[in-house]
Design a protein around this nucleic acid. Structure first.
Length: 575
DNA sequence: GCCGTTTTCGGCCCGACTGTTTTCAGTCG
């Protein structure tokens, strides 16, 4: 699958073009990038089947961009892009990842100070060179340094949602291999951490060499770091490393337990083994020299007197104690989810019609789907005003009648995602909100408010009797923007009092609430909803990332309102 | 450079906010 790779280049061309004076052209490349990225089929396949004409059918791609994609698929290069890079030889993607820096400022930094990457940017900022540039100042310099510090914190890590599709492709291929008897991801991928350093894969095989040969020759491999009898390590074209280990059947469970981690969890499980006079390592559980368990993880945990602990909560954050005391939570599973309450339709900035979203949600096995279009403050997302929202409601009513007439037990819920303005009021009339099945409210502006103000802003929104759910409650964008300043304990208290639900947003770069906040919310008795924030129906699949996050936060079915049947869900809302 | 119940040219990408300025450019959602 090379869609992401090509989309990345198109985005980058768009950034380079933004440094110039030409209107609209950057926007066009941006649209084409989105089109390629959102494509379900592998674009290489599209091209093989239908040639350049098929490429032109990709949304946002016309003749000229189709030719460039063809050039890339054929030669691995796009001359137009290479020329832009030659003209502006600085690491665009790296520089504009700094919050507050865009293409134009990046270009100025390169022209005036020779800034090429984060490293030289940091040197210039530290030496006070940036404050004197035209259009820059002391504050910008300070913001740049803060932005760099933020990026550095988890540099070299990748978003789970970015890596997972590639890993799944590899797993699928390994699974089809006849020499691979068992295949499983391990490490942070298996624990579904929000960011991943490198990918670990475990395989049981009687013919490790064949598996290794296959592994290092996978498409998408950029470099092989090493290849031995039981372990191979490589770098993928997408920039992350992948390790594969082959283990014998008898120690598959213990190896999986060992390589899944976390390190802290393993230290704790090993000391429990020691207390019981046993030894636990990647080869098995031993009494003296005798192997007593190792084939499956269940066997391993049982041998040291514990029930199976789900990978997502293996962080030594209380799961061991809970397991010992028989108090492990029955954490939520994707199959528990009965609907998705945060989907954007083509009434606002979304891509698909409400009917198409409903069909896709039915295919997911859901009983209901909530349409939560943006309201009017968000102009770029074509937010709806009161009148338009009423018209949209009528369309949903009509669709529901149609579904009922077809004998389908599925319901489309009328909702919106209103904007919480700086004073905590909403950008849409309460009278209009009363006509909806549910109301989501979220912060989409002024993220840098003081803690007290921001907390008050959210509290006022939660106190609105029409607001049922707060979307992406802390506003973080992973690896890009920190959470905004809020007193989370107070937010939880008010959420509990006002029966306001907090969202677990499944977007890979959001995953907001994060795991530790989910745990806090659960302990405070605050209910949550796992939503995808879908803007295009393929994103309904983001649900798995939100669910993993919920699992990492120990959430159970009773904590997650969209794991409840429709009637129970509707009864639980404020009105 | 793409697209078309506005159809082969002329629209498209809006407005708040920040930090720089002293009227505005750049960034962000």
């Amino acid at each position: 699958m090379r869609n992401k790779e090509i989309a990345k280049i198109l985005y980058e061309i768009s950034y380079y073009l933004k440094t110039g004076e030409i209107d609209f052209k950057p926007y066009v490349y941006n649209r084409a990038a989105i089109g390629v990225e959102g494509l379900e089929e592998d674009i290489e396949n599209t091209y093989k089947k239908g040639g350049i004409k098929a490429l032109e059918n990709v949304p946002g791609v016309g003749k000229s961009i189709a030719e460039k994609i063809e050039e890339y698929l054929k030669t691995g290069k796009i001359k137009y892009y290479e020329d832009l890079k030659k003209k502006m030889p600085f690491n665009m993607a790296e520089l504009i990842a700094v919050e507050g820096l865009g293409p134009k400022k990046a270009k100025i930094l390169w022209q005036k100070l020779g800034v090429k990457n984060l490293r030289t940017l940091e040197i210039m900022a530290r030496n006070g060179k940036i404050r004197n540039l035209p259009g820059f100042g002391l504050k910008t310099e300070k913001n740049i340094l803060e932005g760099i510090a933020f990026l550095k914190r988890d540099r070299g890590r990748f978003l789970l949602g970015e890596i997972m599709p590639i890993v799944n492709e590899v797993l699928e291929k390994l699974n089809k291999l006849k020499w691979a008897e068992k295949v499983s991801p391990a490490g942070s991928v298996r624990r579904m951490k929000e960011t991943i350093g490198d990918v670990d894969i475990l395989v049981v095989s009687k013919d490790p060499k064949k598996v290794m040969d296959f592994f290092v020759s996978l498409p998408g491999v950029a470099k092989v770091w090493g290849k031995g009898a039981t372990k191979a390590s490589l770098r993928m074209r997408d920039g992350f490393d992948m390790d594969l280990r082959v283990v014998p059947e008898r120690s598959y469970g213990s190896a999986l337990q060992y390589f899944t981690g976390s390190k802290e969890h393993n230290i704790a499980t090993r000391s429990i083994a020691i207390e019981k006079g046993l030894k636990l390592n990647e080869y098995g559980v031993f009494r003296g020299a005798k192997l007593i368990a190792g084939k499956t993880e269940e066997d391993v945990y049982r041998a040291i007197g514990l029930p199976f602990i789900p990978p997502e909560i293996r962080e030594d954050q209380g799961e061991i104690e809970a397991a010992i005391n028989g108090k492990l939570p029955e954490i939520i599973d994707q199959k528990d989810i009965k609907g998705d309450l945060h989907c954007h339709s083509d009434w606002d900035g979304g891509t698909n019609s409400i009917e198409k979203i409903a069909k896709a949600a039915m295919d997911m096995g859901y009983e209901y789907v909530g349409i939560a279009d943006h309201t009017k403050f968000l102009k770029i997302e074509r937010g709806l005003d009161e009148k338009k929202l009423e018209r949209r409601n009528k369309e949903i009513d009509k669709l529901n009648s149609k579904l009922e007439a077809q004998g389908l037990n599925f319901k489309v819920l009328k909702g919106c995602e209103a904007n919480i303005l700086n004073d905590g009021s909403l950008d849409i009339e309460n009278e209009t909100l009363k006509n909806l099945d549910f109301v989501i409210a979220g912060v989409h502006s002024s993220f840098k408010m003081q803690k007290g103000e921001m907390t008050a802003r959210l509290i006022k929104a939660m106190q609105n009797p029409n607001v049922d759910i707060i979307s992406h409650p802390t506003g973080r964008i992973i690896q890009h923007r920190d959470e905004y300043q809020i007193d989370f304990d107070r937010i939880l208290k008010v959420a509990k009092e006002t029966r306001t639900v907090l969202e677990i947003n499944s977007y890979p770069e959001r995953l907001d609430l994060k795991d530790s906040n989910i745990k806090k919310a659960k302990e405070a008795g605050v209910k949550m909803a796992v939503n995808t924030d879908t803007h295009e129906i393929s994103q309904l699949n983001f649900m798995k990332y939100g669910i993993s996050q919920a699992r990492r936060g120990w959430a159970e079915k009773k904590d997650i309102i969209n794991a409840w049947p429709l009637k129970e869900l509707l009864d639980s809302l404020k009105k």
